[in-house]
Amino acid sequence: MSETRILEVVYRVRRFHPEKDEKPYWQEYTIQVEKGATVLDGLHRIRETTDPTLSYRYSCRMGVCGSCGMLISGKPRLACNTQIEEVLIQGNLVTVAPLPNFDVVKDLVPDLAPLFEKHRAVRPHILREGDALDPEPGTEWLQTPQELDRYVQFTYCIRCGLCMVACPTFATDPEYLGPMPLAQAYRYIADSRDGGFETRREIAGTAHGAYRCHYAGECSNVCPKGVDPARAIQLLKREFVLSYLKVIRHRGKASRSEGPIAGAERKAGVPEAPAYTIEQKPLT
């Protein structure tokens, strides 16, 4: 039978209760965890055995939902994706603080609403100006693998906000859109099905948009999914410049198939998709 190694670690956690505290303070917990335990496991252990008042946000526990972003031992990381042994400092110490650059709601819970508002502002969906959502039901947009490669890296974003926290420009400019929304703006601009370049340029091509990025590159260093927002922002700036110089024109270039794609016919017994529950209007 394999022996489970037990570690004794000290968690230094930044606490803040909005109804009791004027400002945050540090509190230490000494806990025992098994080898391989994640920082999130350690927080669960504290809540279960020591302090049930400790607040933090998490959901999937496997690096997919992006809820448990925290400042762990001085660097933004996902708590569920980080093993305690990777982040020990001064022997057996782990520091855990809420993500900076966002207001603290309680303890380790940041208010990420500004992040999602900025994300929404860049219209993170396919825009077909003047077209309906699905102009010819039953047909599909055609896209080559090369066209897919232009943006697929940026579709892996889980909106955890770590890039916004690592960005030194966002630390001093709250109006800066930030790495995540800008990377998502590029993700759709680079999509051959999209026709919303002008709409997004009005938002992302401003002084607080892509041009505010000066390539500190920290967003790409901390991204837990390898999305590389710094690359997306530089490519976004290039699109803006080339478009300004009239070297390229942006319109949705993808064409529609003339009917259902061959081999994609509905199998017998598979029900029809339900009817739309909203009225289809042209997207602007």
């Binding site: 803040f16 909005p18 400002k23 945050p24 001085g74 660097k75 809420p98 993500l99 900076p100 650059n101 966002f102 207001d103 603290v104 709601v105 940041p110 208010d111 690592a166 960005c167 030194p168 966002f170 630390a171 001093t172 709250p174 590159g217 920290e218 260093n221």
Partner: peptide, 18 residues
């Protein structure tokens, strides 16, 4: 709420950056 913005410390502080 507590304003947790780093400000100019975000340029210099933190350590262990690239």
């Amino acid at each position: 709420r507590y304003d947790n913005r780093l400000g100019f410390w975000g340029w210099l502080g933190g350590g262990r950056w690239g």
